[in-house]
Write a protein that binds this DNA or RNA. Sequence first.
DNA 1: AGGTGAAATGTCATTTAGTGACACATAATA
DNA 2: TATTATGTGTCACTAAATGACATTTCACCT
Lengths: 214, 214
Amino acid sequence: MSRNLTRKKTRLELSRHAARLFLDRGVAHASGDEIAAAAGIATRTLWRHFRSKESAVEPLFAQSSLRFAAILRQWPRDISIEELFAAHLGPDRQAAEDTADDILVVRLLAMLPEEPALRSAWLMSCQIGEEQLIEIIAERLDRPRGEFEVRLCAATVTAAIRIVDETVSLAAVKHGLKTTTAEVNAHLAQAIRKASSLPFCDPVTPRIWPDEDA
Amino acid sequence: MSRNLTRKKTRLELSRHAARLFLDRGVAHASGDEIAAAAGIATRTLWRHFRSKESAVEPLFAQSSLRFAAILRQWPRDISIEELFAAHLGPDRQAAEDTADDILVVRLLAMLPEEPALRSAWLMSCQIGEEQLIEIIAERLDRPRGEFEVRLCAATVTAAIRIVDETVSLAAVKHGLKTTTAEVNAHLAQAIRKASSLPFCDPVTPRIWPDEDA
DNA sequence: AGGTGAAATGTCATTTAGTGACACATAATA
DNA sequence: TATTATGTGTCACTAAATGACATTTCACCT
């Protein structure tokens, strides 16, 4: 296995331990020593992986965004976002391990109001998602990655996803609200549509290749 | 003067010192001791005001958002966002002190790519701006503050403002690009229009009062 | 003006977060 | 098997952050 891949997996595993401790004791009362001990590594090693204990949960958040982005990357040009979600989004369509991670994320998001330190980790992870989205939108609409319109649209859509995530998580954990996958998907797709300043949610016309005008 | 107001001003003043030190030496090489010394207070006092040295710049960022929000709050219902900006936005329409603060902010934003710690402070401040915007939009469109549509719109518009701020700052500082106030205003208004999922940028119909249908 | 209580600040000790330096282990490469 | 990269452990250290308690400041009252 590639060097970089194992490192990523190590970080993700550390992230899970950090998340569980933060959930149990709260961020302030979980020390770097404890996280390292729980993961069975030296404290020094923990600090080599993360610049701060709060940022230790970022891989978990980022992993979530990255899996979502992976789905969007396989998005056929001729189907709408609703169809894409129906086909690929839901706990029954992913590994059990990933679902466990999602649950950790949801529980962490529910404690954002009380834990500002966690919020900044979450926002930083959204930033990563935003960069993914720039590439995805640029690709789908056949526009350059650096273009302002593309970056703008990625930012607004990311904001929408963030709001839905926070809303759904809070509703689920704090108010015990049970929502079906279909409902969440619909909610998400609707929010993304409203937020998108470029028309990438519907089927897009395929690029016209130069050698086709013969 | 009210206790709470002096506290706010103290924090803002500390914020300016922190910003200058961060700009000079970089975040990593500016210590809490130095910030406190520069501001002429005890180090212990600095930590009473801020939970971390990075968050010491938040008041400066927040101040910027708050002044912007203050303008939006005075927004007459019968004029467009472009007219509002033309009337109120620009260095010649504000105190010299505020302009100096804006310059600090712009220079800080330009170092976001190299300073992740600063980025999380910036994102946290955007969160504050977002909450302001929720109230402003709800007020202008006569909708409840808690409504999902309103929060969504505030989030997307905040994202747009953030992207414009980052873009303009980077262009100004790194590439020495000079932009006129009118250009920035146009750019900002255009981005907000594209980002807004609710129609608050144009004149809105005044609320119909119950006692008027006589 | 002078007294009063709450909040801000200072001082010092202490804990916790995070880094530097160097030795050792582990795995890919020749 | 020797070689080199990179990851990890140990220990000493700096810097960030908090606790405890004394002192000052200032709005508010008489």
